[in-house]
Amino acid sequence: MTSRQLNMVQAINSTLDFALSKNDSVVLLGEDIGRDGGVFRVTEGLQAKYGAERVIDMPLVELGIVGMAIGMALNGLKPIPEIQFQDFIFTAFDQLVNQAAKLRYRSGGQYNVPMILRTPYGGGIKGGLYHSQSGEAYFAHTAGLTVISPSNAYDAKGLLISSLEYEDPIIFLEPKKLYRAAKMEVPDEEYKIPIGKASIVREGDDLTIITYGSMVPLVNSAVEKNKVNAEIIDLRTIMPYDGEAILQSVKKTGRAMIVHEAPRTLGMGSEISAFLAERAIDYLMAPILRVTGPDTPFPYRLEDYYMPNERKIMKAVGKLMEFR
């Protein structure tokens, strides 16, 4: 078994390459994804290899990209639309919420939308208000959508391969801060990471930290550095999230916190807190805490204050451990 050192951009690029070569029905569409290879270079070289009819440079209209992709998916293609920045997805929101998410349900299963919508999300790249948002809760709140976010190159490939066989619309959120942050061994061969299954990034006994996307390496390094005996859960699939894995861990540790960069109120942290409050109250030794972005828009110059960081995480860890 051969493998290569790849960053997340390279891992996704090679997986898209694999998808296009293996299945004629796969098409990519998005702004600047062809000749330019995408603003983050995720689709570099694919148009030259597979042609402009399958790696489509789209006019600048998000609702058209998503709407067209849905129409393709309804007609036997496997479209992988890209929205250049997740912040720009909102003009396509009706297409996602009222079309993609509801077609299977409203047609009694006659129609379905096997589409993988890829989009970079999150802060940490000096993107300001409109190139930094984490909108996962909007999508997770919509019945019919499946929301995925990898936190490393290996998972990105395995989750994307599982997504290729999935028959419902997926919002594949790529944490852009991690695109080139680290390289790791990624097998050349095909492998799958199941949708809906979290991974235990690190085992521990004193508390459980539930997180995903760009926060995973941050939480991991904070915990390592400060020698906290924490169990870290990387959700990988945000919706449907792996309730069983969360519950098992929290029953063991008795303390839980959730870390994400999206705003706190009604974010995934709220959902997971409620989930734990409903079924793990007898096991909890401390209140469930959330370390998140604040309920403000995402500020450009002050992004370091906005994003969760080691200090905020350790402060919450201290609070959890000291609670009596």
Partner: peptide, 25 residues
Amino acid sequence: FMSVQSPVAANLPLAVGAAYAIKLR
């Protein structure tokens, strides 16, 4: 026939995608 939605004109981009699939094939 496609399945009908309430928000008007939301079927149009889907129809374009369908036409693209037809042309591609």
